[in-house]
Structure formats: structure tokens, C-alpha cells
């Protein structure tokens, strides 16, 4: 049993520690999710660390800078910026079943 009379002394300032998914799984915010066509994707096709516009312009930092780029759909809010900014139209927004 905690002694509430003593424990209030431990509650001081409102402080925070870093966590992943502070707002929950933000991937549930949108049904439409980016899907990368690896046939078109520049780094996937060339095997080189070039382009990565999807990584660059993602406001949520859910695209990885690897070959091929991967998108963390658990937290992707589905804004569609990556689709717009892909220079070779390799990304489309599709309805993805999310568990």
C-alpha cells in the first residue's frame, strides 16, 4: 500500500519523459496509406542512396533512409506528401487494412 499522505510529496512539477506514439498509433488517423512501387522507386531501382524525397519531406519521420525506403504505417498519418513529392510517381495512396 502506498502511503498517500507521504506520496503527494513525490508529485512535484508536471514533467515528461520521451515515448514513442505520444498521441497513440497515429496510423489509424487515415485509411489511405502510401505504397511504394519498387519498380519505379529510384533508390530501389538503382540500388544507390539517391533521391529519398519521401524521407526528406515526411513531416512525421516515418520513412526510413534505406534501400528500399520503408514506411512505418503504424504512425503514418497518410498526408500524402510523399506521393506528391516522389519525382517518378512511385508512391500511391491506397486503402491499407491496419491492425
Amino acid at each position: 500500500m502506498t502511503d498517500l499522505k507521504k506520496d503527494y510529496q513525490k508529485i512535484l512539477a508536471s514533467v515528461q519523459k520521451p515515448v514513442i506514439g505520444e498521441a497513440g498509433k497515429t496510423g489509424t488517423w487515415s485509411r489511405l496509406k502510401p505504397v511504394i512501387d519498387l519498380e519505379k522507386c529510384i533508390p530501389a531501382k538503382s540500388g544507390k542512396f539517391i533521391c529519398f524525397n519521401c524521407w526528406l519531406y515526411c513531416p512525421e519521420a516515418v520513412v526510413s533512409r534505406e534501400i528500399p525506403p520503408k514506411i512505418n504505417l503504424e504512425y503514418c498519418k497518410g498526408c500524402g506528401i510523399c506521393m506528391e513529392e516522389c519525382p517518378v510517381n512511385a508512391i500511391s495512396m491506397e486503402e491499407v487494412k491496419f491492425e
Binding site: I20, E22, A23, P59, E60, Y75, K77, C79
Partner: peptide, 13 residues
């Protein structure tokens, strides 16, 4: 960390 409360497509993020 991913999973912030910002709107989708927020330039500030």
C-alpha cells in the same frame, strides 16, 4: 518520436 498530435501534412512538424 513518431506519433505526435500534429495534423497530417503539418509543415511545422
Amino acid at each position: 518520436h513518431p506519433g505526435t498530435r500534429m495534423c497530417a501534412g503539418c509543415a511545422m512538424s
